Amino acid sequence: MDRRQLGKDRSHLMIPYGRQDIQQADIDAVLEVLQSDFLTQGPVVPRFESAVADKVGARHALAVNSATSALHIACLALGLGKGDWLWTSPITFVASANCGLYCGAKVDFVDIDPRTYNLCPQALAAKLEQAERAGRLPKVVVAVHLCGQPCDMQAIHALSQRYGFHIIEDASHAIGGKYQGDYIGNGRYSDITVFSFHPVKIITTAEGGMALTNDDALARRMDLLRSHGVTRDPALMTHEADGPWYYQQIELGYNYRMTELQAALGLSQLERLDDYVARRHALAKRYDQALVEFPVVTPWQHPDSSSAWHLYVVRLKLEDINLTRRQVFDYLRSKGVGVNVHYIPIHTQPYYARLEFYSENYPNSLNYYSSAISVPLHPSLSCQQQDIVVESLKYIVR
């Protein structure tokens, strides 16, 4: 193949790596809210929260306008602040780390497991041992369930019991997935779990997120923080209310609320959650079977997990195919295959590089990034489209 021809043909329609699935029931649900008395702060958001909490087995669920907002109020509710440390994985979207900086805390990273690409418990244990000697243990560890596969939460939780840190599960990719047979989000091994409802995620509210917890005090704090720190609850006020109109701001909060329109869409989508995840599993299995002889590494799944399969990431065996990742990427895009890369290691981003992180501390993360490429996976992906993806990949890597 003439390498100069890679990326030249752009006549095909793009098959996206991920996309929302909007059906008539979703449209009807949103229209019903549009024709109601409340577009925000009405009854639908609480219904959505209760439905998600019931689905995953959590005590409390608080809907917000993005998973980033959920991460922020989760950190604040756990008391993260100036002088504290937040640790997370380098292989995630920047929001998983930025939430610590928003609180005035410092951020550090723990290298990934080379098979699951999630935060590695062994690397975490070694880093914690060093941090204890140096007097800089983390207050919060954000465990990111990359691609929808849960981290080894039992091992991470055991370390939290020994070293005294809080755990946030960044399950932005993982609603509908399971760990040890139970739905992710039940809070068995963490303080707070965060879901994302961005359009490319498992279910969508257009933009939106949710924080779930079994702790009553954390739920009350996050409820305040998402809405300006304002309360109408007499039990929380500093003195008796002046009248039925009265409210008090008792925290410095934010305007992170979810609208009724978003919640209506989410409620409708939630009814199809298990179907969506089942379809993603079927497509992932087809990829596994179709790519078995290819010079790529397909995703390994831990036996304790059942991924929500937000992403299907293959790792190119670049030494075998004699091409760069960029050449493969450009060729697939030219053939209408909307591949992407998830994620650029956070510590290499210019903002974080100025904080003096050293890449040699995260060899597995860099090795992963050098060869990772996400191929299309979403419930609307047809088998015919998936075959186009496979044949295009087969052509370029062979």
Rank of each mutant, 00 (worst) to 15 (best):
M1A: 11
R4K: 15
M14H: 04
I15G: 11
Q23W: 05
Q24I: 03
A25M: 04
A29W: 08
V30W: 10
T40P: 03
G42F: 02
G42L: 04
V56L: 00
A58S: 13
S69I: 02
L71F: 10
L80F: 01
G83V: 02
L86I: 01
W87S: 06
L101V: 11
A105M: 06
I112N: 10
P114E: 13
R115Q: 15
A123T: 06
K127C: 10
A134K: 15
V144P: 07
C147A: 12
G148P: 01
M153R: 00
H166A: 05
H173I: 00
H173D: 10
G181N: 00
G185W: 00
D191C: 00
T193N: 05
S196R: 03
P199H: 04
I203G: 01
G209C: 06
M210F: 07
L212Q: 04
D216R: 09
A219T: 04
R220C: 07
D223S: 14
L224V: 03
R226Q: 14
A235L: 14
H239Q: 14
W245E: 13
Q249T: 10
Q249W: 04
Y254T: 01
Y254M: 11
Y254H: 15
Q262I: 04
A264D: 09
E271K: 14
R272H: 12
D274A: 09
V277C: 08
A278M: 09
A278W: 03
R279K: 15
A284T: 13
Q289G: 11
P299Y: 08
D304G: 00
V314L: 13
S334Y: 02
V341P: 00
I344H: 14
I344D: 12
T348D: 12
Y362S: 05
N367V: 13
N367S: 15
S371P: 00
I373R: 03
S374C: 15
L377K: 03
S382A: 03
C383W: 08
Q386A: 09
V390Y: 09
E391F: 04
V397N: 05
